[in-house]
Amino acid sequence: MSSAVLVLVETDAHRVTETSLETLTFARDLVKRRDGAQSHALLVGPVDADLRATALSQLADQGVDVVHVAQHDGLSAYSAASWATAVVAAAAASSAAVVLAPGTPRGSEIMAHVAARLDTAMAANVVAVGEVDPLVVSRQVMGGAVLELMRLTGRPAVLTVAGHAVEPASADHSTQPEVNELQMDLLETDLLGRVVRVEASELDDTAALTGARVVIGAGRGAGSANGFDGLLELTRLLGGALGVSRVVTGLGWRPHHEQVGQTGTRITPDIYIACGISGAIQHWAGCQGAKTILAINTDRDAPMVTRAHYAVIGDLHEIVPAVNEELQRRMG
């Protein structure tokens, strides 16, 4: 019997997101290891012609065989339940053995609905596949400090893929995906939990943090709510975003939307300059996706220092202003 591996693909206004490309890359390995399986992807929601064309070429590059497209009046505003209806319809249309989504807030939420509806187990934040049949996956628990090997016997198996579990990569051979316009019916109840409006607010800055190439991190070492001047100046000079530890938000020194970590934002900058942050596992969960980490800390043995690529030992209130000065001098 033919079977499929189905990926729920997230897009922004223009293209398939980076985390979705990671999930597609992750899924391709699963397809390879399941003889004769097909690779399916699902696009949901208001997908205009430009986005559709870009997404289809990205999915071709990912080696996807079939792309299901769910378009429906009821999908004009997001609701997890209606997105889940699309996933369940695509899973049926593809007789999916495994359904995956990126481990983003929406990906996790939609997959929980899917698993509840199909009465099957779900593994969140998977980083690797052990055995394929029966499926055993390795996933992050304790905010990433521990891995759990989990067996998924239900069909389809439902899972979300942790950010940075794999590097996104193109398939060896690109495909010409077949497009299936998905037929689906939405129920009144699917729409109860839809977004009625989006408010522009300080929370918008979270997006800046998620997408920033440079993040300046600040922890308890900042000392007080008034201890951020140098750090904000460095952030400005580098055109980056400020990210903080929970101690900082907990003490009310900075707003919560700046928090990086397990219960904050997960960041993926080119460089994370972590100042006065100890590097507790819950913080690490949010910053481990940084390409390079530079720690500035008084404690040579702080986990943030030992796990960083580069470090400067000393008081951030002396070091950061000196860096700012040197930067201004060189930038002219």
Binding site: R307, H309, A311
Partner: peptide
């Protein structure tokens, strides 16, 4: 739960390069 077992991720050897101490490292 489907749990087979827990594992601690392999300890990453520290590769940190200390650029210096104090403001002289700027």
């Amino acid at each position: 739960t489907g749990r087979v077992r827990l594992e601690l991720p392999p300890a990453q050897p520290s590769v940190v390069e200390v650029l210096g101490e104090g403001p002289e490292a700027a």
